[in-house]
Nucleic acid binder design. Structure first.
Lengths: 341, 341
DNA sequence: CTGAAAGCGCTAACAT
DNA sequence: ATGTTAGCGCTTTCAG
């Protein structure tokens, strides 16, 4: 394996100069630099990251802890993080920590045990206070996405606001019988997403002077089958059927629409459905949705940690800060035509 | 940061002994070992991976190159790979290489440039011969999943056989008008999956003495919307409608079923649909499916590369070897009742 | 079974 | 602007 010494010899300079020329740190004359670069590439030289990490203390790796990969939201975040990281010249170490205790400890051990990452990005991680302090004890930049992590700067959209916007959109279209299909407020891994979206919904109704009771809201699993099941129930009885539904997530909304279509209910003609996320499948179902860009959140988190790495002293926005996603009503997709009023 | 020297001092032994005790390599008396371990954990000592990599030449990292994350098949592989790697004590470096040229070269540069992985797993990577040789030139264990990579041991299911099994299942149930909805044979990133599944389908028909013409097969995009679009076309005309459909992937099958239900066609009563993959959403649509376990392929690939790492001399099965997935007909879900004979 | 010592390949002062 | 030199923290002969 060709090392820095070979390059130095070929270029007729010292190892130090090669290091400076290739890393861009320190003064090197343009002429020398190009000679070194030529030598390096002709030899196919590449720095040994272990050697350079050993002396600099920097690994150029960022660890990502994520609870699942096989769901649109999480996969999107991961894609965004990966893209941003690669772009900035960092590598991504993936830790898919599931709920099982054994795996959790293993991951935390690895992180704490191996000093191989410069920073950590934690995605909707549900962790105990002690796990948090273990993370913090690393003394490395950390950013969270999607769930407030006590003591850790976290990114997420403004759920209350998003829900309110969605609901107001329906109200503006003339709907008065609007129902909310959301997640179970008592669910694990909630991070108050469900309760916040419910709150935004209720606030919007209230502002518009519309009544809200326990029939205005129903909880289900946060995926397509969840929405489907509930959709069949809600829409089965024509007398109780709302004219519009605000689903807390596109996946739920899609389930509802599938159910509706099977029942011969046309969306959006007979029933308006709006969701949050802008899930790619939405287009197929004529779904109106507020755009949440998990990939952008991922990119943002990367910015946060890298900025801390590269300009010491800089600190991300305070704990639990909430960065609103771009909320876009794709009105072209939504043409609700309420029967009521 | 506490180093090996501190541990040695506290345990009253030399650095060398600490190293042996903690790494498990070399002779250390049981008594000494436990003293060292106690010292290490009381100090919260962890080895510096850069230092140890520098001297051993091993990083304990495996690189994974994958073209996309946000799709069931790919995410499943990634989950399987991650699980297996974590289990064996390796870390996973993720490289999501999309089609854009810039990103590709960047990834390949990183791999070639940084010597930070011990092995590489390439998922359905469509690479040029020179990229292949770049990979091979790394001189590190490599395994591919899903697409035959010239010169690289690759895992995939037996597509022809899977398609044949699925089709035979329908034939056995009495169907004679069976249609295949598959991917476009001329598609990029094909790896012959589409043509192989088509071939298996045709062979099954032929063996059963059933006719097959150009109307027996239709190509579409390999996802839910793709299946939906085609479903509407195929099933719209009651006279041409087949009694059964073999979809080349569950996602396509699900699209077809959604279309069928909207048309008032009951699955599986009026129409049998079978797919390949055992996609989790299948259950919601009463879909019969052959089980493909991408996560298991991921785990297998990990075994291959790690085995090469840990027992030099061992070699994985020859190039392009095909490992059949577990093919499970979930007959409980499928109750086709053909109108024809 | 344990210790001493020689690096692994590079970077960062410090000189020049 | 470039060269010299002293390690970074660990593993691994080689002695004992």
């Amino acid at each position: 394996m060709t090392g820095i010494e070979d390059v130095a010899a070929l270029a007729g300079v010292s190892k130090a100069t090669v290091s400076r020329a290739l890393s861009g740190r320190g003064y090197v004359s343009a002429e020398t630099r190009s000679r070194v670069e030529a030598a390096a590439s002709s030899l196919g030289y590449v720095v040994s990251s272990s050697a350079s990490s050993l002396v600099t203390g920097r690994t150029n790796n960022v660890g990502v802890i994520i609870p699942m990969i096989n769901q649109w939201f999480f996969a999107s975040i991961l894609e965004g993080v990966e893209r941003a990281l690669l772009d900035r010249g960092y590598d991504l170490m993936l830790y898919n920590v599931t709920k099982t205790e054994a795996e959790r400890t293993k991951v935390f051990e690895y992180f704490l045990v191996r000093k191989r990452v410069d920073a950590v990005i934690a995605v909707t991680l549900e962790i105990t206070p002690e796990e948090t302090s273990q993370l913090l004890a690393l003394g490395k930049p950390i950013a969270g996405i999607g769930g407030p992590l006590e003591g850790i700067p976290t990114l997420s959209i403004d759920d209350v606001e998003a829900a309110r916007l969605a609901t107001e959109h329906l109200i503006l279209l003339g709907h008065r019988e609007i129902m909310h299909v959301g997640g179970d407020v008592h669910e694990q891994m909630d991070f108050h997403v469900h309760s916040k979206r419910l709150r935004g919904f209720l606030e919007a109704l209230q502002s518009a002077g519309l009544p809200a009771d326990e029939h205005s809201y129903v909880a289900t699993r946060f995926d397509i089958p969840g929405g489907y099941t509930v959709g069949k129930q809600i829409l089965g009885d024509p007398r109780r059927r709302p004219t519009a539904i605000f689903a807390a997530a596109d996946e739920v909304a899609i389930g509802v629409i599938i159910a509706a279509r099977e029942l011969g209910i046309s969306v959006p003609d007979d029933l308006s459905v709006i969701g949050i996320d802008n899930h790619p499948l939405g287009a197929m179902f004529g779904l109106t949705s507020l755009e949440q860009r998990p990939d952008l959140q991922g990119e943002q988190a990367v910015e946060w940690v890298i900025r801390q790495l590269e300009q010491p002293g800089w600190a991300p926005p305070p704990v639990h800060s909430v960065v609103p996603a771009r909320l876009v009503i794709r009105s072209s997709t939504a043409r609700p035509r309420p029967r009521a009023s």
